[in-house]
Each structure stands twice: as structure tokens, then as C-alpha cells.
Design a binder for these strands. Structure first.
Lengths: 138, 138
DNA sequence: ATGCTTGCAAACGCTTTGCACTCTG
DNA sequence: CAGAGTGCAAAGCGTTTGCAAGCAT
């Protein structure tokens, strides 16, 4: 938890209980929760926190590159504590969003850079299909 | 235009002027317009068409795999007449969305398939940066 | 003729905003 | 203490839905 506070300070953000709680959730899970999910998860421990605060905080963290916003095609956004760029896999059955552990995409950015006229700054790669648990019982 | 009607029929969809108009716009531009943009573009020629019809039609086309829905991170969706799967490049300056012409990604799906436990059905690949026009005047 | 499609308006759900209060640095 | 963050309620906006009328097959 101390670590999270340091990360906020490094970005010159004020350290508040709400920010620590929200950032903490994202930092310690790989579920890629939505704002609503984060809000509900914090209800027990932070019953007075409002959904608006969750959104405002996520926006702040996003602007400081501590958190990435994912558009997997649902009606709401999901969030991910950004460590390094990595592709996401969305299960069409259970709707889970997991990090894809692969090295295949490591060099594609520079390769695409060489092939096209487009200057790439960042990327979002989504793969849709069936996760380990669901693919057997499609 | 005849061609579009055939494509609709092939998917067992009724051929209506509205569907032809909307599909036609998507089929003949590479702008990846939003529902709103499509609606406005059709105002001159189809003044009675409602925005709801645009949404319903896009949904129909989407379900028949004639159109792909893009989540580039804006507040609204964009649409693309799907020919073959291809990555998209979003310009951070002019907000244009263009098709990326590259072969780099051709085999990644099967490669990822081999590396991970995830069964890939489809993919959406977005690259953010600066387009040819904007990169000189960043 | 029948069932799908359209158009209108109202509803919906996620996200944002305004403002007064509170807290961090 | 000043300025930024929080919480509440209300507003905003893209998208969806219900229903009556119209059209494709």
C-alpha cells in the first residue's frame, strides 16, 4: 500500500484514501473491472464513496498513465493498472478479460512503423474467443 | 448498388432503401463513420430516416457480419464494412481512423493460439499515433 | 397476407458536471 | 491556508426500446 502512495506522489497527485483504494483494486487484481465493479467492491470498506469519485479518480489516474482504459465492446469501460503494454483476451462466453501472455507481438509496433506511414505511439490489441475454462464447454 | 442488394439477400435480409443507403455509405468510404455521422450524411437524400433506424440497421448488419463495430476509445462507436480483418490506426491529432495496410499481423492469430490457452475467434487491433498528414505538424 | 422494418418519442444506462464541503500538502 | 478532491444530485449523451404504421417478400 505504501508503494501505491509513492506512485501517486511520483505523478504529483495528492494521496487520498479514495485514490489509494481505487488504485489498489486495479493494482491487485487482473480482472479489469468496470467503474461500477470497483464501486461495488469498495462499498464494504468505503461505504461513503460515490460513483462519481470513482469516475473522477479513474480519469485522473488515466491522465497520469497509471491506469489504462479498455474498450472491449461492452457498454461500459474497463480499467487496467498499466504495467507494460500487453494484449487482452475477451472470452465470448464468460465475458472475462484477461491479459494475454505472449511474446508474438513484441516487435510488431516497429515492424508496422517501417511498413506504413503511421507514427505509432500506443496500441490496444483485443482478441475475442474462448478462454481456457470455457473452450471445453463451448 | 446492385451488388449491395445481393449481399443483403445472401444473408437473407430484406432489401430496403434504408439498408442500402446505410450499407452503401459504409461500403464506399474508408472513414469509419459513427451512427451520427451516417445519419447526417443521409439527411440530404433520405430526410425522413431516423437515427433509430440507423442504429437498428447497423445492429442487423453487424449480426450478419456485413459490418464491424469499432471501439476506438471515443464516446461513440464507429463502423466499418468488413471485408477482411485488418488493424486500424487512430490519429491522436485529427481523430481519423484509417485501415492499416500491413502484412505484419497476418499470422499472429495462429501464433498466439499456439502460445496460449486461448481460442481466438476474432480480433480488434488498434494503433494510436499520428497519421501521415499530422505527423509532420505534431 | 404476414411478418419484418421504419419512424417517432420516450426510456435507459453509463458517464460527466456543478456546487458546497472537506481534506491534503 | 489555498487549492485540489469528494459526495450528492442532476444533467448529458449515445444508444435502445415500444408501438403503430408501412413495406418487402
Amino acid at each position: 500500500m505504501e508503494k501505491l502512495a509513492e506512485m501517486l506522489k511520483a505523478k504529483k497527485l495528492k494521496v487520498t484514501p479514495q485514490r489509494l483504494a481505487i488504485f489498489g483494486i486495479l493494482y491487485n487484481t487482473r480482472n479489469h473491472p468496470s467503474a461500477e465493479t470497483i464501486y461495488k467492491a469498495l462499498q464494504p470498506t468505503h461505504p461513503t464513496m460515490s460513483l462519481a469519485t470513482v469516475y473522477k479518480t479513474l480519469d485522473t489516474l488515466k491522465k497520469s498513465d497509471l491506469v489504462e482504459e479498455l474498450n472491449v465492446g461492452e457498454d461500459s469501460f474497463r480499467y487496467d493498472a498499466t504495467i507494460s503494454p500487453h494484449p487482452h483476451a475477451i472470452c465470448l462466453k464468460c465475458n472475462s478479460v484477461e491479459d494475454l501472455d505472449t511474446k508474438v507481438l513484441d516487435n510488431i509496433t516497429s515492424e508496422i512503423q517501417d511498413e506504413t506511414d503511421f507514427d505509432i505511439i500506443s496500441e490496444k490489441l483485443y482478441f475475442y474467443g474462448y478462454c481456457k475454462k470455457c473452450k471445453t464447454s463451448k
